Amino acid sequence: MSKKIILSAALTGAGDTTSKNPDVPVTPKEIADSAIKAAKAGATIAHIHVRDPETGGLSHDVNLFRETVERIRESDTDVIINITSGGGGDWVPSEDDPTRGGEGTDIQTPEERHEPVGELLPEMCTLDCGSTNFGNMLYVSPTDWLRRQAKLVQESGVKPELECFDTGHVRFANQLINEGLIDGDPLYQFCLGIPWGAAADAETLSYLKSRIPENGRWAAFGIGRMQMPIVAESILQGGNIRVGLEDNMYLKKGQLATNEQLVDKAAGIVETLGSDIMTPAEAREELNLLNPYGKED
């Protein structure tokens, strides 16, 4: 196979993982340093969440995003920056009153979710394309909210990565395209193995990719032990890949990983299957991205 592969590194995520792996980055400096190391190991894209430096928990603080992005941009290492815009969607019904959110609920409006993207203008951002059962929590992203958020992303000139955790999310992503809310060739990310979304297997991946338009590009990732199998399967089926501590904490059974180790392992799979990883410059051309300073290449 000859197609070059875009490799994303999802550095930290928002889950309760910092107590399970000491190499999950928390502070803006740690996240930026991890992005730089991942890029040097071969990552094309760094996908960024931020965390509260004091607690290690989820944060939506724009200043933390700003510091992280500035540290990456000021380094000598080139990598495409992809900021999450999916924060603030967690709903856990209260046991006392199920009409209200209980402990763990964290809901933001579309405008609040978009704020780091709109202020910092990264080259890419995620756009979660629907609500889903996420373990025992509901991730809330109603369709009218998504239309508002897609419009904000479109007006910012940032490239949305359409995150699809189930088949219906692909259908709605296609609807956003039909309504003129996604510019250019769309880019999908198939998120596989999340309880209780789309399964992490070859059949599900094949179905999802069959439902996107001809000009669509796609990537996929699996969580936990399915991370590397989905890397291989995505390459074989003609897509791009994602690895990182957001989705999996182990290099192999019993051995905790770093982001750069996961990138290096995925790069080895790419090479074994006869392909190469795209550089950030090549991916900018492939995806028609803005450069890190908000101007077209």
Rank of each mutant, 00 (worst) to 15 (best):
H114M: 15
H114P: 02
E115A: 12
E115C: 00
P116W: 08
P116H: 04
V117I: 15
G118M: 09
E119S: 12
E119A: 12
L120H: 09
L121F: 01
L121E: 11
P122E: 10
E123S: 05
E123M: 08
M124W: 13
M124D: 08
M124L: 12
C125F: 04
T126S: 15
D128V: 03
D128Q: 07
C129H: 08
G130N: 05
G130F: 02
S131A: 11
S131G: 15
S131Y: 06
T132W: 10
N133G: 09
N133E: 12
F134I: 06
F134L: 10
F134H: 11
F134G: 00
G135Q: 11
G135C: 06
G135K: 09
N136V: 10
M137S: 04
M137E: 13
L138M: 15
Y139N: 00
Y139E: 00
V140D: 01
S141P: 01
P142D: 09
P142E: 09
T143D: 12
D144W: 10
D144A: 10
D144P: 01
D144R: 13
W145S: 15
W145P: 00
W145I: 11
W145A: 15
W145M: 13
L146G: 02
R148Q: 15
Q149M: 12
A150M: 07
K151A: 08
